[in-house]
């Protein structure tokens, strides 16, 4: 198909193999420099503020600074999964190839944020709880979310036919999305039932404004970072697909 296919509205039954994602690429190219620049600024200012400007916690000391990475990472873990679910719904309903691509490209990113949240949570736990891992409700739910991401990534690559993997992954993402609040709720429930007496529970401290603004800035930085890398991944996936299609054309030689 030629560029006509690109002008088709999403959902039209064009032959997607050659659907020209030119519009998306132009948009991505226009947005990417801004995204990347703002990411760098937000993260640089946010990190500086978090490490040097914000005060240490009177109870937790300097280790409270881990929160400036841990909390935004945990936010992003949920945010990325929401993005995947929305993109998957769009892919299933309108069969839009770019939505498919977005869901598939977001999944490893979300998994990385989830891993970061787990790792920083564990680092934070050592001085606070005296052990690297506690079956705390929040950490445990994030751990389950991490496995949801792994499942999504595994199934999208499990088929010879990439289209089959995309559709299976989209269905799984929606099923997982419905289950996330259920899992979260039941893990909280489980945790309150088995409250271990020996562990002192220290949650996120009530936040003073001097701690809040660096935290929010880090959150913005993480979000921008997510979109920057997502666009880059989608671009490279598209180019890889183009390469595959061109190679297939030369093999067919028709």
């Amino acid at each position: 198909m030629t560029s006509q296919a690109a002008s088709n509205p999403p959902g039209s039954r064009s032959l997607h193999r050659f659907a020209n994602p030119g519009r998306f690429l132009r948009l991505a190219d226009a947005v990417l420099p801004w995204c990347a620049g703002l990411t760098a600024i937000a993260l640089a200012v946010g990190l500086a503020a978090a490490l040097f400007v914000a005060p240490a916690d009177y109870q937790q000391g300097e280790s409270v600074r881990i929160m400036y990475v841990h909390v935004p990472a945990a936010w992003m873990a949920l945010f990325a999964y929401t993005c995947i679910a929305v993109a998957s719904a769009a892919a299933l309903i309108w069969r839009h190839p770019v939505a498919d691509l977005a869901a598939r490209s977001a999944s490893p990113l979300g998994a990385a944020f989830t891993f970061l949240a787990l790792a920083t949570g564990s680092l934070w736990g050592k001085p606070m709880w005296g052990t690297w891992w506690v079956w705390d409700a929040r950490l445990t739910s994030v751990l389950v979310l991490f496995f949801l991401y792994l499942g999504h990534m595994a199934i999208s690559n499990a088929f010879e036919d990439p289209g089959r993997g995309r559709k299976a992954a989209a269905i799984l993402a929606l099923v997982g999305f419905v289950n996330v609040p259920i899992i979260k709720f039941s893990v909280d429930w489980w945790n309150t039932l088995h409250q271990p007496a020996s562990v002192t529970r220290i949650g996120v401290p009530t936040i003073h404004p001097s701690m809040l603004w660096p935290l929010l800035l880090m959150g913005v930085g993480f979000t921008l970072f997510f979109f920057t890398v997502l666009l880059l991944r989608m671009k490279s996936e598209l180019l890889a697909a183009r390469l595959r299609n061109l190679r297939m054309l030369s093999v067919e030689g028709r």
């Binding site: 389950v144 496995f147 499942g151 595994a154 199934i155 099923v175 899992i183 039941s186 893990v187 429930w189």
Partner: peptide
Amino acid sequence: LLVLPLYIPVLIF
């Protein structure tokens, strides 16, 4: 890998 995370609520309750 796909199913076990979804089984957790049933196990807990």
